[in-house]
């Protein structure tokens, strides 16, 4: 797929689904690790961060795609950054207006969405070369893939670290919380475990596909 990106892509289900699984920004491309590790202590924070990032990603990608013929190559990065920063500022105001508690919990990581490489990467690698509707679908898929990954970390960390899900106790009375999961090291542990799962599933799937296509696999 990647070698075709300089020509407009036809809209297929894959345009959307790539971001969720095959090119998942977190589990496959390992992009945007900063918020992934920092604000996934609880499910709510992870969800808010994921949606905020998705909004910025979709909004900036659409604008970049819209302006792709007008922005000269020399100033494209500067333009993209200004566009992304604009959307981040909007999100920043919006979250403050919605909930100060959430704003305090996400802290500087809202403003730091501007340096999330998933977004600049999408603008540079996809939106600047693709038509509006495929850009919308693709960046939405990427954003949701990012949100899903954050949720995957956030739920595990909140359940293990506090015994709750979205603040509601889900485990029996007397459950011993794993304090480390709510702390920064927990982010690394859970991310590592998820990557382990994905790396274990990925090759198995690829092998199955290969076998299905008639290839012979030599296993050690």
């Amino acid at each position: 797929m990647s070698e075709l990106l300089n020509t407009p892509e036809r809209l297929t289900p894959d345009t959307f689904l790539r971001g969720l699984w095959q090119e998942n920004p977190v589990f496959t491309m390992l992009l945007g690790m900063c918020p992934v590790l920092a604000v996934t202590g609880t499910t709510l924070n992870a969800l808010a961060m994921g949606l905020a990032t998705t909004f910025v990603l979709v909004g900036s990608s659409l604008l970049v795609s819209l302006l792709r013929h007008w922005i000269p190559k020399q100033v494209r990065i500067a333009s993209y950054i200004v566009i992304i920063a604009t959307f981040v500022t909007l999100v920043d105001y919006a979250i403050q207006a919605i909930s100060l508690e959430l704003y305090a919990a996400l802290g500087a990581f809202i403003q730091l969405i501007v340096v999330n490489c998933v977004i600049l990467g999408r603008a540079e690698a996809y939106a600047s070369k693709q038509r509006l509707h495929t850009t919308f679908v693709n960046s939405l898929g990427m954003g949701l893939g990012f949100s899903l990954a954050l949720l995957a970390l956030g739920t595990v960390r909140e359940i293990l670290g506090q015994g709750t899900l979205l603040g509601v106790p889900v485990l029996p009375e007397g459950f011993q919380p794993w304090v480390i999961m709510a702390l920064p090291p927990g982010g690394f542990f859970v991310l590592g475990s998820w990557l382990l799962v994905f790396n274990w599933l990925g090759p198995r799937r690829a092998r199955r596909d290969l076998v299905a296509s008639g290839a012979t696999i030599h296993v050690r």
Binding site: Q176, V179, I180, L183
Partner: peptide, 10 residues
């Protein structure tokens, strides 16, 4: 070290 961080009270 892991259990020290995970279960500091115990």
């Amino acid at each position: 070290a892991f259990v020290q961080a995970a279960f500091p009270k115990a």
